[in-house]
C-alpha cells in the first residue's frame, strides 16, 4: 500500500520528464507535510481540532519518516496550531519526506530512478514510471470518489483534500469533468480539518510567491 505522500508524488509526477514540474517547491513541501500529518492522524498518533494539534500516542509506527516527525511533534506545545506545524514541518522535514517518498516508490516497483548530470556537473534525478498499475488504481479510486455520490472511504476523502489543496485534481479528472465535480470536491475537501489548514497554507504560499510579480 502506498502512503499519502507517495500517492501525491505519483500523481504529481510528469510522466514524460519523470520529475515534479507544476507545483512550486514550497507548495509541494506543504503538501508533503500535510500528507504525513494525515497519515499520523489515521494511525491515531496525533489528533487535531479546528484550533490545535496534539500527540496522543508516541508508539513508533515502523515507517522511518512518520517516526521522525512523530518524535519532533512530541516536544510540541499543546497550543501550537495546525498551521504552525504545517509550516514547521515544511521547513524541517518536507525535503526528507519527498526523498523517502521517491525511495519508497522505487522500492515498491512503481518508479525507477535515473541519475543524470545537469550541465554535466549538477546531479539530477528523474523517476519515470516503471509500471502504470498503481497510478491507474489510485486515479480510478479517486475518480470514483469525485464522480460518484456515495460517501468515499476515509483515506480517499483525505487524499482528495490533499490533492485539492495542492491543485492536483486536474490530474484525476478531464477538463469537462471538473465543473460538474466542483461542488463534490469542495464537499469532500472540507470534511478533513488538516486538508483545510493545508489549503490555507498553500494559498498563503502562493500569495507570497505572487508578491514580487505584483510589485
Amino acid at each position: 500500500m502506498l502512503t499519502f505522500a507517495e500517492e501525491i508524488v505519483l500523481l504529481a509526477l510528469d510522466e514524460k520528464e519523470g520529475v515534479i514540474t507544476e507545483l512550486p517547491h514550497q507548495a509541494l513541501h506543504a503538501a508533503m507535510s500535510g500528507a504525513v500529518l494525515m497519515e499520523l492522524c489515521l494511525l491515531n498518533r496525533v489528533d487535531v481540532d479546528a484550533k490545535q494539534m496534539k500527540v496522543v500516542d508516541t508508539t513508533p509506527t515502523g515507517e522511518p519518516i512518520l517516526d521522525a516527525v512523530l518524535k519532533d511533534l512530541q516536544g510540541s506545545h499543546p497550543e501550537h496550531t495546525l498551521a504552525y506545524w504545517l509550516n514547521r514541518m515544511a521547513g524541517h522535514h518536507a525535503h526528507e519526506i519527498l526523498r523517502l517518498s521517491f525511495t519508497g516508490l522505487v522500492r515498491k516497483g512503481v518508479l525507477r530512478e535515473e541519475k543524470h548530470r545537469f550541465l554535466w556537473v549538477f546531479p539530477d534525478r528523474r523517476y519515470p514510471r516503471l509500471n502504470d498499475r498503481e497510478f491507474i488504481e489510485v486515479r480510478a479510486r479517486l475518480r470514483q470518489a469525485l464522480l460518484g455520490t456515495d460517501i468515499p472511504e476515509v483515506r480517499d476523502i483525505v487524499l482528495v483534500s490533499l490533492l485539492n489543496a495542492c491543485r492536483l485534481i486536474p490530474r484525476i479528472l478531464a477538463d469537462d469533468e471538473l465543473p460538474r465535480a466542483h461542488a463534490r470536491i469542495a464537499q469532500l475537501s472540507r470534511l478533513d480539518l488538516i486538508g483545510q489548514a493545508l489549503a490555507q497554507s498553500i494559498r498563503e504560499i502562493e500569495f507570497a510567491l505572487s508578491l514580487p510579480m505584483m510589485l
Binding site: D47, V48, D49, D150, I151, P152, V154, L191
Partner: peptide
Amino acid sequence: ISSAGLRVLLSLTK
C-alpha cells in the same frame, strides 16, 4: 469532538 471523532461519525454514516 476532534478529527478522530469526526472520522467515527463519517464511517458510521457511510
